[in-house]
Amino acid sequence: MPIPILMPALSPTMETGNLVKWHVAEGDEVAAGDVIAEIETDKATMEVEAVDEGIIGKILVPAGTNGVSVNSQIALLLEEDEDKSVISESGAPEISAAGEVSEPPAPPPDSPPVAPDPIPAISETAENSNAAPEKANRIFVSPLARRIAAEKGLDLSQIKGSGPHGRIVKADVEHAQPASSPAIEAPPAMAPSDIAALYAPGSFTEEPLNSMRATIARRLTEAKRDVPHYYLSIDCRL
């Protein structure tokens, strides 16, 4: 009679595991202590050894299957005097696996490189024409008046200078009043269609959680949900 190979409990808290890789194939001979598979638990990926000697008659759970329950059959081991027809006659038992075979995400199609737009040449005439408005918009202000304006939060472009050639001096900024800042409007709310466009198929890559990350998420949820919480606060005068 075929010997069932079960999903082992590799940690005290393990309920399910992911069958990452098979090191043997159907028809291979194994001895006790040979590594036959790699199992991913909620803490690490560990190797599974054969406990009996024989021939791998049938692999019931393919590599890459997630959420295989502990103590469920993952393969059948034939003894030396048994034939593979024994498995077909007795029928393969059902597998208690909660997950499906995980497939790596398909890589996005390679897009052809886009040539950068040519940078237009800037003529000397254009440079001179741009320099003229900059000189016209220059604000003449004394260093002391500039420092006082910065301390009071004044906009120098809104102050009319009384010094030579319209230069802003100390007296101008001392008598100036800071302009009232305009009210900041809240940005408009995004429409549901705009939010859905951010998660359109193909615009992101979904990475499945491994067993360790899934366990961390489950434990954090249980700690917040099941453990009573209370919060303390204190006011400090600095």
Rank of each mutant, 00 (worst) to 15 (best):
G64R: 04
S129V: 12
R237Y: 05
V35T: 14
L156G: 05
E134D: 13
G54D: 10
N137F: 11
D81W: 00
G166W: 06
G67V: 02
G161D: 09
A186C: 02
L78G: 02
F140R: 13
E127W: 10
L76G: 03
P108L: 15
S69L: 05
A196M: 07
A145F: 00
A98K: 13
P93C: 07
P120N: 07
P178Q: 04
H165L: 14
P164G: 07
S193I: 12
R218W: 11
G153Y: 11
E79Q: 13
D81Q: 12
D28H: 06
E47R: 11
E124W: 06
G33S: 04
H175T: 12
G57R: 01
M212H: 12
V101S: 06
M46E: 02
P208L: 08
G166M: 07
P116E: 15
A171P: 00
G54C: 05
G33F: 01
V169E: 15
E207V: 15
H165I: 09
M14K: 06
E26F: 00
D110L: 14
P143D: 15
A106Y: 02
L78C: 03
E89N: 11
P116T: 03
D235Y: 06
P8E: 13
A50P: 01
E80Y: 08
A37G: 06
F204N: 04
A50S: 15
M190W: 14
A98Y: 03
V227M: 08
N130H: 07
R218N: 09
P62H: 05
S123N: 09
L78T: 01
K170T: 10
V68F: 09
V20G: 02
V48N: 03
E47S: 14
S96K: 15
A9Q: 15
